[in-house]
Amino acid sequence: MSTLEEHVDVGVPIDRAWDRLHRVENFPSFVEGVRDARTEPNGRAHLDVEAGGRTRELEAEVSDRKERVMEWHTTGAPLLAGTFSLKPIDRTHTRVQARLEYDPDTVRETFGGPKGFAQANAIERVVRSDLEHFKDYLERER
């Protein structure tokens, strides 16, 4: 398994960032490749994802931990897991940290794309870009 961690500082209070992070139906606004997303019963989310010219439906279980940490993991292939951690910087700024655990070969087989280091770089770029889009999404709604 590979692990990727990235963060972005956003100009909104932690409560607003936490609330927006839980609006699964808005994921297409800031997560690259997500075409449709919806909350399902029992802490699940359904995502229609397009990547590498392929479309896949993903089901994920989502749960919250103390200290503003959201955990998630897919319930089928590809096996992915991660967390979003929110930390207050001050009253009007929040750090959003994303952690993703994935098997590069499984991601490549499922969605296509390059092998090895090139794929890791591509995944890093996507996660960084998604965090920047999340920042824009949050700050646009002030």
Rank of each mutant, 00 (worst) to 15 (best):
N121R: 15
L131C: 01
E61P: 00
D9F: 08
R95K: 10
R56F: 02
L80F: 07
D9C: 09
F111H: 03
E132K: 12
H133W: 10
V34D: 05
R54V: 15
L86C: 06
G52H: 02
D19Y: 14
V62W: 03
E132T: 09
A120D: 14
E101P: 04
G112R: 04
M70G: 05
G76V: 06
G33C: 08
V34C: 08
D15A: 14
Q119L: 14
Y102W: 10
W72C: 02
P78T: 05
A77C: 06
K115Y: 11
S85A: 14
F117C: 14
E32K: 14
G76W: 04
R20A: 08
E5H: 11
R125G: 15
E101F: 09
V126P: 01
V126Y: 06
N42A: 13
T3Y: 11
E32N: 15
T55W: 05
L47F: 13
G11E: 14
Y137H: 04
T106D: 13
D130R: 06
E25M: 03
S29W: 04
G11H: 12
E67C: 11
T74A: 07
E132A: 12
T110S: 09
H22R: 12
S29Q: 13
M70P: 01
V107H: 02
A77E: 11
D9E: 13
H22D: 05
A77W: 05
L138H: 02
Q97E: 12
N26Q: 13
F27W: 10
S63N: 11
G43Y: 05
A120P: 01
R23I: 06
V126N: 08
E109R: 09
D136P: 03
R140K: 14
E101C: 11
Q119G: 06
G52D: 00
P88Q: 11
G116Q: 09
R125W: 12
D130Q: 08
H7F: 12
L86K: 01
V10Y: 01
E61I: 11
I89Q: 09
F84N: 03
S29H: 12
A51P: 00
L86I: 07
H93N: 10
L79V: 15
G53K: 06
R38P: 01
L47G: 00
T39C: 07
E124W: 07
A118W: 09
F84P: 02
I123F: 03
V31H: 03
L138K: 03
L131I: 07
E6L: 09
V69N: 04
R125K: 15
L86P: 00
G112M: 03
E139G: 04
L80M: 13
